[in-house]
Design a protein around this nucleic acid. Structure first.
Length: 422
RNA sequence: GGAGGGAUGGCCGAGUGGACGAUGGCGACGGUCUUGAAAACCGUUGUGGCGGCGACGUCACCGGGGGUUCGAAUCCCUCUCCCUCCGCCA
């Protein structure tokens, strides 16, 4: 959510940003509703002040004609307050709804462009391996090795579901545990195990609702939502809280499954395990002081890249241009691993600085020092990493001519010493 | 799932229609006293909206929302959460 004061004072900046984002939002409605709200507030508060004073007088007066007259007078005032309150409430509801539709403002450093074709490759690390044979895509490797079962996944749950089996399941579990250990031991994160279903408020807090409900699984009976990412429960850990002085920065890392209906991506990437309705992810979430958030973003990206480095898989960092920026993000970088089988760069991590956008929605504040006024924190998050795509990259980069897959060095202790799959 | 009891400030806890944004205690912070500390004593100690350059004024907030009333922490409705007992259960 944007600061209403900011919108009121800089409507032209906001309008300009919307053009850069190549999107639309109810800016004019917000300005209009805000003006109405303030006018109504002024009126209703003056009446309330009057009523407060006279009501106290009434309490002191003995029963008399004068007292009855004042009561009658205040009854009228009460009716006017009631009427104004009703209008005020509907204006505030409409204003709030409109504000929830407003995307974050892009950070000044974000390159301007209409769509993903204008994203910028910031750096590339590692050399793609030289193959003396034709590297296979993971779906062929996985099936041949008996570690991915697509058909039975579909039998159980429909399209975009699959089953990992044997050393395939083990490899994913090894990756998860190793990544968690890496972020906890080397990068200073505290591990969190959150609920996988949340209330709607949490999704509003992170920015998934109300705009992107189509992409979520919703249990109607209990009105709970399956999380699309650990970002949702972990960011909302401190919803409606004022963190005491000295709390920041907070670094959390969580492993969770993620559930996405993918209605918006129907038909894309249907082959393999790249895009499923359910996938695992290790997610890093940071709560920091506003002044530090851009540096914190750098180290967050580096933490994600470190996973790639240690797995010895080539990766690159891509900065999203304004037209490809997520609704909630002020800045966003993707980390992509090279996958030689499918011959593409796979997005294994998405690292964003939301500034105070989520903090406003979720009302997450901190107190800089004892006695000082609370301020909104800045929130950031980044995958560290998404499992299916990392699994793809491992399988495809470490495949041998005979179809077997070598286990990356760092994972062997987590694989019970297994060095080769197949 | 059934029955009952609760939710008040950082914490504990009083308050059942009018001087209550809220008694008191604890904690924290500042001060007096002291060589220093403790004790004692004094003081400070929530969040947000609106108006104002500002001192400040004003409105709202006693779990959330709605209602009754001239007036609500207090009465009514509703939702959420917590606790106790019973049932079921990995």
């Amino acid at each position: 959510m944007l600061d209403l004061n900011f919108i009121r004072e800089h409507p032209d900046q906001v309008r300009e940003a919307l053009v850069k984002l190549n999107t639309e939002a109810p800016l004019d409605a917000i300005l209009e509703l805000d003006a109405q709200r303030r006018e109504l507030l002024r009126e209703v508060e003056a009446l309330r002040a009057e009523r407060n004073i006279v009501s106290k007088e009434i309490g002191r007066l003995k029963e008399s004609a004068a007292r009855q007259a004042k009561i009658a007078e205040m009854r009228q005032v009460g009716e006017r307050i009631q009427a104004l309150d009703d209008r005020l409430r509907s204006v505030e509801d409409a204003l709030h709804q409109a504000l929830l539709q407003m995307p974050n403002m892009p950070h000044p450093s974000v390159p301007v462009g209409p769509d993903e074709s204008h994203n910028v490759v910031v750096r590339t690390e590692g050399e793609p391996r030289d193959f003396d044979f034709q590297p296979l895509p993971h779906w062929d490797l996985g099936e041949a090795l008996g570690i991915i079962d697509f058909e039975r996944g579909v039998k159980l749950s429909g399209t975009r579901f699959y089953v990992l089996k044997g050393l395939g399941a083990r490899l994913q579990r090894a990756l998860i545990t190793w990544m968690l250990d890496l972020h906890v031991r080397e990068h200073g994160y505290t591990e969190v195990y959150p609920p996988f279903v949340v209330r709607a408020e949490c999704l509003v807090g992170t920015g998934n609702l109300p705009k992107f409900g189509d992409n979520l699984y919703h249990d109607v009976e209990d009105d709970l939502w399956l999380i699309p990412t650990a970002e949702v429960p972990v960011t909302n850990l401190y919803r409606e809280e004022i963190l005491p002085p000295g709390s920041l920065p907070i670094y959390h890392v969580a492993y969770t499954p993620c559930f996405r209906r993918e209605k918006m991506s129907a038909g894309r990437d249907v082959r393999g395990i790249k895009r499923g309705h359910q996938f695992d992810k290790v997610e890093m979430v940071k709560f920091v002081e506003p002044e530090t958030s851009m540096e914190e973003l750098e180290s967050l990206i580096d933490n994600a890249e470190d996973v790639c480095r240690r797995l010895e898989i080539p990766h690159r960092v891509v900065q999203m241009c304004t037209g490809d920026l997520a609704f909630q993000a002020a800045v966003k970088y993707d980390v992509e691993m090279w996958a030689p089988g499918v011959q593409e760069w796979l997005e294994v991590s998405s690292c964003s600085n939301f500034m105070d956008f989520q903090a406003r929605r979720a009302n997450i504040r901190y107190r800089p020092a004892p006695g000082e006024r609370p301020r909104f924190v800045h929130t950031l998050n980044g995958s560290g990493l998404a499992l299916p795509r990392t699994l793809i990259a491992v399988l495809e980069n470490y495949q041998q001519a005979d179809g077997r897959v070598v286990v990356p060095e760092v994972l062997r202790p987590y694989m019970g010493g297994v060095e080769v799959i197949g």
